[in-house]
Amino acid sequence: MKKIIQKNLPKLYLKLLIYNQTINWKKRNLKLTEIEFNNLKLIRKFSRQHVLLCGYPKSGNTWLRFFLAHYSILQQETVASTITYSELNEIQNLILERPFNRKKYSRKSNSLIDKIVWTHAPFKSDYSKFISKYLLIYRNPLDTLASSWNYHVKNRNNLKRIGYPKNDINAYVKLRYVDWEKYMVSYSQLDEHQVLAVSYEELLKEPVGSFKKILSFSYPNHNCDLDKLKKAIELSSFNSVKTMGRIKDQQHGMAAANKGEFARKGIIGSYKNELTEDTIDYIKNKVEKNSIITSLNIKYE
């Protein structure tokens, strides 16, 4: 009996953590931070009409930021090579979790990229008092969470420092699914005309049509230049960003603590080589039980 209990302890512990994650999610995630509140006050003060680019970490946020930055630059000048991660943060610098540069923000800008504010945060009801349009990028949870484990745990040499469940990719994916699901559901409370939800898989399979839809939503008064759109897609492609990172010694992306490459695989279905069948079935069953998530038409390959 003692051996049976010891064998099942990790599974029981994981269930308890998932339960706690579920009941404490709102308390941890849905209140404005002081930085967010101050940034949103600036938006109101200067009556800016922003689009909030949002997405769970490792869903393609950075890819979309690269595209929007490149397309914006191409309106004024030619771009020969992919901008660096550092340049991206300078160009698309309105990040909700970081203090806005008040002096810079006060100057009116006609640059397309300055209409974009970015966040990894779930939707908070107070956002709607300041921002009316939301561009949500999402990716199937299996690839998202497997990629998250590689980036936040494996590539930061955290395996030796932390214990179960985070050092086990399968347990990590099951535990973090609660966050992913709640994140996606949080944005479902917005009216349909307020949010454009675009999947990572759709962007990979039909880039021109998908990115054109994004531009139409984000900049309704802008006439899309198809040649510049295609150039921005080329400059922002997975291979272009990965090559830039290696040439510029910025493989770590925006996180110096990361020992691996930020741009890891960039494909659909890589989870199949990383997760067990039990984990894959567990997540797919969870997805099927949530009508809001199933309405997103999640693609696993």
Rank of each mutant, 00 (worst) to 15 (best):
Val153Gly: 08
Ser148Val: 03
Pro141Gly: 12
Ile113Gly: 06
Lys27Gly: 10
Asn8Thr: 05
Ser128Lys: 08
Leu96Arg: 01
Ser109Cys: 07
Ser270Lys: 14
Glu77Lys: 15
Ser147Lys: 00
Asn158Ile: 12
Lys284Thr: 12
Phe262Cys: 07
Val79Cys: 02
Met1Gln: 05
Glu87Lys: 04
Ser109Ala: 09
Asp179Gly: 01
Glu234Gln: 04
Gly269Val: 02
Leu196Lys: 08
Gln75His: 05
Leu229Trp: 06
Asn8Leu: 15
Arg102Leu: 15
Leu88His: 00
Lys230Ala: 04
Tyr282Lys: 00
Lys228Pro: 03
Ile267Thr: 09
Val208Thr: 01
Arg48Phe: 11
Glu202Val: 03
Pro207Gln: 02
Tyr151Pro: 01
Ile95Tyr: 07
Thr119Ser: 14
Ile280Asn: 01
Asn285Ile: 08
Val195Asp: 04
Val173Gln: 01
Gln6Thr: 08
Leu74Met: 05
Lys213Met: 05
Leu204Asp: 02
Lys230Phe: 04
Val117Phe: 10
Tyr164Ala: 03
Ala69Ile: 07
Asn221Gln: 13
Asn239Thr: 05
Asp191Lys: 11
Phe238Ser: 12
Gln6Val: 03
Arg65His: 04
Ile162Trp: 07
Tyr85Ser: 05
Ser81Phe: 01
Lys104Asp: 10
Lys104Ser: 08
Tyr134Pro: 05
Leu145Gln: 00
Asn24His: 14
Ala146Val: 11
Ile5Val: 14
Ser240Pro: 11
Ile73Glu: 02
Asn61Tyr: 07
Pro122Gln: 06
Leu30Ile: 11
Met244Gly: 08
Ile35Cys: 04
Cys54Ser: 13
Ser216Tyr: 13
Ser72Met: 10
Leu235Tyr: 04
Arg161Ile: 12
Ile116Ala: 06
Leu32Val: 06
Ala197Cys: 12
Arg28Pro: 07
Asn221Pro: 04
Lys133Ala: 02
Tyr183Cys: 09
Asn8Tyr: 15
Pro122Tyr: 10
Lys182Glu: 12
Ile43Cys: 12
Lys166Asp: 13
